[in-house]
Design a protein around this nucleic acid. Structure first.
Lengths: 219, 219
DNA sequence: CGCCGATTGACAACTTCTTGCCAGATCGAG
DNA sequence: CTCGATCTGGCAAGAAGTTGTCAATCGGCG
């Protein structure tokens, strides 16, 4: 077998981001991407070109699918990016569930993001047909159960506006009564907002919500 | 006035870490440092030399004072580093309070860490005598109210060992009863450990604890 | 061997949070 | 102008978390 049909492990963003950028520019039929945030695949850092650059190729038939966690919609920058992908002709869906961060290119190459180890993240670049097929199936399943961006964005647009202030008072460690007063809301309404934030973050406890908010750079 | 007596603003770690490294090697009488974590001043990333390199100069009379947040002692690497500074002849104190991250060199230069802005941190490098004096005074006040490392470390040594597992179940979002069972503890004991963690992190709510744990890289 | 200090687990009181329900207010469409 | 939809705030029930107290256990020390 040609040695391109292997699994390569790449360590660190400096290594993986140029490869992704290259793969994105050479993709012919399909780019499918699942991300918990806009950092993993070099989008936030600008390592990958803006979605506008894909528009002509989408018009020519390139299929672009982006699957994101709902939590990222709480960040105005991320929300704007996701909408830009949609405007460029890409298809964007949102899920509240934790995602296995994945990229599939042309049904032939799959990139899977591993765990952080000593501050460095590993990525597996796979070209074995059976493995790529399996990863594609998993992606398709997650895609099917997700919700269109427009539906989610309508829901979180207002929440996004007040999310920074809510997260700030939550992160200050004070009680709901104090937080509500600080924001000029009733306790009930404040608690509604917190519940919405937790739902958007996919968090089952306030501790978990704090961790996720921090991970997403919302705090 | 010589233009060295100014305030310079430096943006980004790549800029500030080499300067700090240089200042550390040229310091004559005193290095005072306050850090909320071991990342801000380039310690965790290795940009600054290990504490052993200071030992000969400490023996010659260089005074090294390090003031850290109690939360960092939950990280074995950080705890080891702090103890190494102490072993090298430095003086290390611990506070549960939030710190204004500062370095003072020879009572003549002060470096203050600002807030993150768009993922980049600003640092102010100050040589104006009056300002440096004021910063030194603030540092001294925080130093006086802090506790020796040995006292704190005795307290958190056992907590440090089980902190990863506790933080992991906390971050999973499950209830205390479930978490306790997962760790093989009673609910009361689990809650004692969580309370100790929150105290070490200086957190008043679980949400705040989640944020701080994530910031410290404990999760 | 006995005593003492530390720790654990059970129980409980209290606080804080989660969510449902309902009345009233507001706003937009017909 | 009316009506329906939506949101807010108050109230409340229940769940989850916080902390105190006490009895039991264990290990170390004299």
């Amino acid at each position: 077998m040609p040695n391109t049909e292997t699994i390569a492990v790449v360590r660190g963003e400096a290594e993986i981001h140029p490869r992704i950028a290259h793969l994105f520019t050479t993709a012919k039929t399909e780019i499918s991407c699942a991300a918990n945030d806009l950092h993993t695949w070099g989008i936030r850092t600008g390592s990958v070109q803006g979605p506008q650059s894909l528009a002509p190729r989408i018009a020519e038939g390139l299929v672009v699918r982006k699957l994101y966690r709902s939590g990222i919609l709480l960040d105005p920058l991320c929300a704007r990016y996701a909408n830009a992908v949609q405007s460029a002709g890409g298809d964007v869906r949102i899920t509240p569930d934790e995602l296995n961060e994945t990229i599939v290119i042309d049904g032939r190459i799959a990139i899977l993001a591993g765990d952080l180890s000593h501050g460095v993240r590993s990525y597996s670049v796979v070209t074995v047909p059976e493995v790529v097929q399996g990863v594609s199936s998993l992606y398709a399943a997650a895609w099917r159960s997700a919700t269109p961006l427009s539906t989610w964005d309508r829901r979180v647009a207002e929440l996004r506006e007040m999310a920074p202030r809510i997260l700030e008072v939550l992160a200050s460690g004070c009680k709901d009564e104090t937080a509500a007063r600080t924001l000029g809301l009733s306790v009930r309404t404040y608690r509604r907002r917190v519940a919405e934030l937790m739902a958007a973050l996919g968090a089952g406890s306030r501790f978990q919500a704090g961790v996720k908010a921090r991970e997403l750079g919302l705090i």
